[in-house]
Amino acid sequence: MAATAHMTLEEIRKGLSWRKQLDKLFIAIGMALLFGCLAILAILFFDLVRDGSSRFGWDFFTSFPSRKAENAGILSAAVGTMLIMVVTALVALPVGVAAAIYLEEYAPKNWFTGIIEINVTNLAGVPSIIYGLLALGLFVYQFNFGQSVLTAGLTLALLILPIVIVATRESLRAVPKAIREAAYGLGATRWEVTKDHVLPYSTGGILTGLILGLSRAIGETAPIITIGALSFIAFLPPSPVTGEFPFLNFEWLRSEFTAMPIQMFNWVSRPDQAFQANAAAAGAILLGMTLAMNAVAIWIRYRFRKKISW
């Protein structure tokens, strides 16, 4: 007599308890998978640290590669990676943010914008090694940039461009329409609305996107191998800062280089067990750098999320 015409209260309750059991079962499965994944991450990290522990020491950071595992170090690789990241960030940030602003705030809805959108979506899915082939054909063969820091930096910048664009667009989109309308209502032009309101509110998302992009770039091995990075470099690129006017030197852009992931790959693919300790140590450092960058990105995102809530 109670409840809905076709279901008595008892029926409702019976069905409900079954449905709630399913909920609990799902929660158990979800948590098991989630924490399983996280446990693997922890195991991976401890594994690397343990295997590489014998190699951690000042010498490892200040030595060039060597034929003898116990003498080999990551100096040239670490410097190479840092210089590449500078180039990548300086190219990817302005281009990525500008492209995102265009697509999100300016682009009219027509076939042409559609093509740009499809391109960005597509580029995000292009395997990194294809970027390596692009760079080999374009920057190395056509533009004669050589197998240099500049080539590597540009390659990785193109590689992370979709990440920066997507992250920026997302954070631009998160700014409510009402804010834009409020600014337009006061007579602001589109650029003024963007610059004064939309961009400041989305700085967190943009920075997060850039750092996440760089953390992807720092570990990328395949495209750099493809452009022909050497794995045995026993010198450093020329210093970007000099004692004489104009105090800056861009020779380093044309220098040959090696990078952390290349160095690790080189070591891991050697049959000699001793080099595997080197690989583990280099891997632990690389992983540590990536995790640190991600931690910073997360912190920024968290800060901005807290500060602004719609």
């Binding site: 991976l44 990328e220 992983l287 997360i298 995102r301």
Partner: peptide
Amino acid sequence: TVKPVLELLGAVPTVVYGYFALLA
């Protein structure tokens, strides 16, 4: 708390995963 940590799993350089696959 967990989501950013999970994202770290995707941020691990692939060469490190290669090491993991081969040696673990």
